[in-house]
Design a protein around this nucleic acid. Structure first.
Length: 500
RNA sequence: GGGUCGUUAGCUCAGUCGGUAGAGCAGCUGGCUUUUAACCAGUUGGUCGAUGGUUCGAAUCCAUCACGACCCA
């Protein structure tokens, strides 16, 4: 791009002024140099010298090279202060005319907050005791053309924060902390599973049949094959194929895509951990999940006692474990055990509590509706709900004693589903029958129902070991660990409508 | 999809009953060699989200639309 002289007519005078400064830099030579090398981060200086007193620092003659973004500037005649921010934090700069000379002092005087600078200098403490760098050399490395948000109130407009996350990250340090914690969370989970002998794999995102969950997929087109493909809604069926193939402990952490609405809890692409362990059942999986959640909290947060949105959660205590029926009865005194098997009464009650009621719904689906409407958001302390109806669990193994329910659990924390796991259905004929029921539901108008995956059935016919599988919503887990009220706060670039 | 609220200078926000568009910060000019929301003096800066309507006159009232936040489905 060489037409830098062309300034869009809608730019304001602040940008125009900075472009003039840039034009002068271009005229003087390389305006975007890449030959300055730093050897020190702000955090290192603060950590190493922050607690030393002013007198002892006077003997420190080491010259450090730092680079970063100028975040504040205070010019006082022939001496000036600034704040330099790098990836580790901030440190104060002290620039004096009689040390750096006219040219560099002018550079600093006319620098804008937001410019990227390289400086060399020694450490000292000011009268007020702030560790600072006495600058002996200063260079402008990149000219900032767009003014940063105001220094005191900062950037609060949520729309701008999400759309221009880079700006949010520059001016709101706690945002950076949130995403560092997110990275730490994922890394901890990988280490945790690796240590238990799990193998991490990657399975297709582009799938000819979007299986493994009940959700509407995104459709795309593969030109070379002239065929529609789907962005995956879950990796589940592929991971279980791998268990058939002998990956007896396997996991994947990756993106899923669901063609649903946007909300504080939903983004169309989100990150899911799924892991599968052969020769284990859902109870062992629950124990593993409980340990994982507790340990990840300690690793990321330093403690198993978490403050989330004003409420304290003690993950050290054993998680609650209730069956879905127990939970529904506990929260709905108008219902008794006999009502839970009476379709008419359940349908009437589900309707009363605002649930979706359709003629095709059996008692299991109706019970689930009532659970979602009356119980889910009340499950604040970590709670496993078990015995999900078979009707709503097309991939889970039916319970040996009561085949109307499955050996399945979901974990709720702060009223939100965090994990979902079950003993896998490994009877190929039962699975084929459940796929056929899903296909029938789809034909009856349920556009979230599953399709028949013949290759998956073929894989089961080779023999899927008895297996437990779990999915953990990473975004919701990170929300909880970072005290974030909205999923958008834990996604670097949350989905937004295109700008007008 | 529905409801409520919001959108005014680069940022954060005021704007009365419908009567010439405001502040702080940032910017620009000058002063100031230990400041830290530096300070002092002067000063520039507006498609009031968009479109249409009511009115002598609209940031303000009405309608539609766009985008966002929160709640609900």
């Amino acid at each position: 791009m060489t037409d830098h002289a062309q300034t869009p007519p809608d730019e304001n005078h602040l940008i125009a002024t900075r472009r003039e400064k840039l034009d002068r830099l271009r005229a003087q030579g390389q305006a975007f140099p890449n030959d300055f090398r730093r050897d020190t981060l702000a955090e290192y200086l603060i950590g190493t010298y922050g607690s030393r007193d002013a007198a002892s620092l006077e003997a420190e003659t080491t010259v450090f090279a730092l680079a970063g973004r100028l975040m504040a500037k205070r010019v006082m005649g022939k001496a000036s202060f600034g704040q330099l921010q790098d990836m580790s934090g901030r440190i104060q700069l002290f620039v004096q005319l009689n040390v750096v000379g006219d040219a560099q002092y002018e550079t600093f005087k006319h620098a804008d907050v937001g410019d990227l600078l390289g400086v060399r200098g020694t450490v000292f403490k000011t009268k007020t005791g702030e560790l600072s760098v006495k600058v002996s050399e200063l260079r402008l490395l990149v000219k900032n053309l767009r003014p940063l948000p105001e220094k005191w109130a900062g950037l609060t407009d949520t729309e701008v924060r999400y759309r221009q996350r880079y700006l949010d990250l520059i001016v709101n340090p706690e945002v950076r902390t949130t995403f560092e914690k997110r990275g730490k969370t994922v890394r901890f989970i990988r280490n945790f599973l690796d240590a238990l002998g799990f193998i991490e794999v990657e399975t297709p995102m582009l799938q000819p049949i979007a299986g493994g969950a009940t959700a509407r997929p995104f459709v795309t087109h593969y030109n070379a094959l002239d065929r529609d493909f789907y962005l995956r809604i879950a990796p589940e069926l592929y991971l279980k194929r791998l268990v058939v193939g002998g990956f007896e402990k396997v996991y994947e952490i990756n993106r899923n895509f669901r063609n649903e609405g946007l909300s504080t809890r939903h983004n169309p692409e989100f990150t899911m951990l799924e892991f599968y362990q052969a020769y284990a059942d859902y109870r062992e999986a629950m124990d593993l999940v409980e340990t994982l959640i507790r340990d990840v909290a300690i690793a990321v947060h330093g403690s198993a006692v978490i403050r989330y949105q004003g409420r304290t959660y003690d993950l050290e205590k054993p998680f609650n474990r209730w069956t879905m029926k127990e939970a529904v009865l506990r929260h709905n005194p108008d219902l008794d055990a006999s009502a839970l098997v009476d379709r008419e009464r359940l349908a009437a009650y589900a309707k009363r509590v605002g649930g979706d009621v359709k003629p095709a719904y059996g008692v299991g689906k109706l019970l689930t509706e009532i659970f979602e409407k009356t119980v889910e958001t009340t499950l604040l302390d970590p709670t496993f709900i078990t015995e999900f109806p078979t009707e709503v669990s097309p991939l889970a193994r039916a319970n040996d004693a009561d085949p109307t329910v499955t050996d399945r659990f979901e974990l709720f924390i702060a009223g939100r589903e965090i994990a979902n796991g079950f003993s896998e259905l490994n009877d190929p004929d039962d699975q084929a029958a459940r796929f056929r029921a899903q296909v029938a539901a789809k034909q009856a108008g349920d556009d979230e129902a599953m399709l028949f995956d013949a290759d998956y059935i073929r894989a089961l016919e080779y023999g899927l070991p008895p297996t437990a599988g779990v999915g953990v919503g990473i975004d919701r887990l990170v929300m909880f660990l970072t005290d974030a009220p909205s999923i958008r706060d834990v996604l670097l670039f949350p989905q937004m409508r295109p700008e007008a």
